[in-house]
Computed example of a mutant assay.
Amino acid sequence: MPDAIWRSNLAVFDLRVAVPPRLRTQVAETLRNAIVLGELAPGERMIERVLCERMGVSRTSLREAMRELENEGLLTNLPNRGLIVSVVDPKIAQEIFDVREALEALVCRLFCERATDEHIERCRAVNVELMAAYEAGAARELIAAKNRLYDVLIAGADNAEAERMLRSIHMRASQLRMISLSSGERRKASQEEIQLLIDSLLNRRGKDAERLARKHVQQAAKFAMSMIRRTGELS
């Protein structure tokens, strides 16, 4: 279960979206973050009237955004029920972790081989932000900081296909990340794993980075899968 700090950060989640530009993109990102942070729970129905009222947007913008999330696998269209937040069963969860492990290990190795000095400095700067977010234990800030780290690693790895696949699997893994970071004990272990990984990235130790990236995902998977198996599904 999330600790008190984690719960307090979720409790103040605001779904209201600013007016355009690119309103559909903003609506999709807001819904995506709400799913990642558990504001919209697995299995919850996406009731258009309620969501439009909460977000202050039109049904047209909402429907366009929900189609985008359905394509990403974050929403599922059920007969006679309509769209719901996708429920991830243990088999799918393990498959997502397996793919994520392989892709993140590859990206980390490529970063060590191809990153420019500018990428290295950006990684160093993001690490400072990420460690501060870990210490604060704030859900939104921590996930945002991890996303910025992945953005830097992907840019430095300079492989368009790896980027496309990793971003796709991160969409599918978003709910699982929430589980693995919801425990204070797991977050502490995650922080230590990430710090070791970043040290290897900053010093361009490709083999170490690849190994540590795999270990980090494996440990996240171990924790998340134990939580999921208690109920048989992410719900």
Results as ranks from 00 to 15, higher is better:
Met171Pro: 00
Leu75Arg: 02
Ala209His: 03
Ala65Met: 09
Ser86Lys: 01
Leu75Ala: 07
Ala136Tyr: 01
Thr30Asp: 03
Leu51Asp: 03
Ala155Pro: 04
Ser86Leu: 01
Ala102Met: 06
Gln26Tyr: 12
Gly82Glu: 07
Pro20Trp: 12
Met178His: 05
Ile194Cys: 05
Val152Phe: 06
Leu110His: 01
Glu72Val: 07
Val99Phe: 01
Val99Lys: 00
Ser58Pro: 06
Glu185Lys: 13
Ala155Lys: 10
Glu53Tyr: 13
Leu153Arg: 03
Ser61Asp: 12
Leu202Asn: 09
Leu83Ile: 10
Glu104Lys: 03
Met165Ala: 04
Ala41Tyr: 09
Cys112Thr: 02
Glu70Ile: 08
Ser183Asn: 11
Met178Ile: 01
Asp199Cys: 06
Arg100Phe: 01
Arg164Asp: 09
Val107Tyr: 00
Asn33Met: 10
Ile5Tyr: 11
Pro79Leu: 07
Val57Ile: 11
Val27Thr: 09
Gly82Phe: 08
Arg140Leu: 12
Arg114Ala: 07
Ser190Cys: 04
Pro21Trp: 14
Lys188Arg: 15
Ile154Gly: 04
Arg230Val: 12
Val128Ala: 10
Thr30Val: 12
Cys123Ile: 01
Leu74Ala: 12
Leu31Lys: 08
Ala11Thr: 12
Met46Gly: 03
Pro21Ile: 11
Asn33Ala: 13
Ala157Asn: 08
Arg63Pro: 02
Gly156Asp: 04
Ser182Cys: 08
Leu153Phe: 11
Gly43Tyr: 04
Asn159Cys: 10
Ser200Lys: 06
Asp117Gly: 06
Ala144Val: 07
Lys222Thr: 11
Ser183Glu: 07
Val12Asp: 13
Phe13Asn: 07
Glu141Gln: 15
Leu83Phe: 11
Val88Ile: 09
Glu68Cys: 09
Val87Ala: 03
Ile96Phe: 00
Val57Ser: 07
Leu15Arg: 14
Arg229Phe: 06
Gly73Ile: 05
Leu106Glu: 08
Met165Glu: 02
Glu101Leu: 04
Glu64Arg: 14
Gly56Thr: 08
Asp158Leu: 02
Ala102Cys: 01
Ala213Pro: 03
Glu101Cys: 07
Thr231Asn: 15
Trp6Pro: 12
Ala162Leu: 07
Glu192Leu: 11
Asp89Gly: 04
Val107Pro: 00
Asn159Gly: 08
Val87Ser: 04
Leu69Ala: 05
Glu129Leu: 11
Ala93Cys: 03
Ile143Met: 15
Thr30Phe: 04
Met227Ile: 14
Glu68Val: 12
Ala34Pro: 08
Leu181Arg: 01
Met227Lys: 13
Glu53Phe: 12
Gln26Ala: 13
Leu196Ser: 06
Glu193Phe: 06
Ala18Phe: 13
Leu51Phe: 07
Gly184Pro: 07
Met225Glu: 09
Val19Asp: 11
Val126Ser: 02
Asp117Val: 09
Asn203Gly: 11
Asn71Gly: 15
Ile169His: 00
